[in-house]
Amino acid sequence: MLVRLDYPQTFNNLIENILTQDFAPRHSHPAIDIAEYENESIVVAELPGVKKDELRITFENDVLTVAGERKPYEMPRDGRVLLNEMRLREFSRSIEFPHAIDGDKISADLQNGILKIVVPKAESARPRTIEVK
């Protein structure tokens, strides 16, 4: 039996589905940047409205995990929601690095909703110059 696959139609339906959905931005998990430098990697996560004590940063089995919970805005009794796009509630992200890490020296700083974690490379993973005798 031959089944005609109607690709354009399928594609259009797909696009239409996406378009007709509420395509408000969904920020259910924080966006992160990871950059590697000579002696360290730097992880930057966007965590607007997250307080220091709502954050848990762990380093276990060479995996760095950033987890936490953002408390939703407390609606006053006479309040009504007109728009709700902020989706960040509970979040957890784990990162494995392509190089060995000095776990004891990881440091983190939270400012203006930006979490910056400095992950120093282990001595063995740092670039070294070998002198020719």
Binding site: L47, P48, R80, L82, M86, G113
Partner: peptide
């Protein structure tokens, strides 16, 4: 890019919240 926005209405005011980390 498009930052996420929450808007609430109260009897006396509107409250608009915008996620703007690092701005």
């Amino acid at each position: 890019w498009t930052p996420a926005v929450d808007i609430a209405e109260r009897d006396n005011e509107y409250v608009v919240k915008v996620d703007l980390p690092g701005v």
